[in-house]
Design a protein around this nucleic acid. Sequence first.
DNA 1: ACCTTAAATAATAATAATTATTAATTAGAT
DNA 2: ATCTAATTAATAATTATTATTATTTAAGGT
Lengths: 138, 138
Amino acid sequence: MDGLNTSAKTIKYTNQRMEILKFLREFNGHPTVDDVYEGVKCKLSRISKATVYNNLRFLAEKELIKEVNTKGVSRFEANLVTHHHIICLECGDIKDYESEELTEYSLNVASKIDGFKIESTDTNFYGYCNKCRRKQNG
Amino acid sequence: MDGLNTSAKTIKYTNQRMEILKFLREFNGHPTVDDVYEGVKCKLSRISKATVYNNLRFLAEKELIKEVNTKGVSRFEANLVTHHHIICLECGDIKDYESEELTEYSLNVASKIDGFKIESTDTNFYGYCNKCRRKQNG
DNA sequence: ACCTTAAATAATAATAATTATTAATTAGAT
DNA sequence: ATCTAATTAATAATTATTATTATTTAAGGT
């Protein structure tokens, strides 16, 4: 597995680090720190939660994963291709939504913004997933 | 000042509640809970921080203000017109950006999403503000 | 294969953010 | 003016995150 050759400085390929990255790459969603902690425990039963925090920060710093803006707790994802998010206002569930057209449109808008050097953009869609809609209607 | 007639249930127009709402409506930005707490203190010196939390939650619930998705701490805004955010990756500063075209474009994209009933949408632009760019370049 | 060393880890303490509890107060209805 | 449910202040409890430190380990040089 590669993916850590990001700078001249020595980066250690520890088991913990690699398992966390692997978990994120395989996880279909936007896990919280606790999700990651629980997820890698089966492989590394003695891992410390601080190690999970450290590595998530580290991997995000190296741009191997991304932190997602959410209310409340931190969430992470390994999908580095620009994409958008659909967020359920009821249960908080987050789904990825890819749309190159929208990305391009937004980047074009971004190019007209001054006072800021825009590097990236993403769009959130807020609504209610089928499950929660069913619940609401009774 | 009006703005609290949102449901049949009794809503009390307390000083604390009204000052918090006023502060948010006059504040030009995206204050944190602490910002709000400090901001209303000059008017209500004995206010409790729990009251600030309660009212921000309450006002967001009644859709008189909105919580902004951000990394780390909670932020709020009273600008209810759909708009977008420009976020500095260095200092975390958030600026509003209005673009009806982008909103319409996104809502049109949203109408094609299935499995979700989309109610609203907003776009984030990530980059570096002039101040931070100047710092980086030295 | 063995040393060396900076980096990473585990365990835990410390801090910060948020929520819950409860007795006292108060806005609005009667 | 009285009543009552909602709200508040104060504070305790909980949760999320960061800092500390002694120990362990990956990677590079010999």
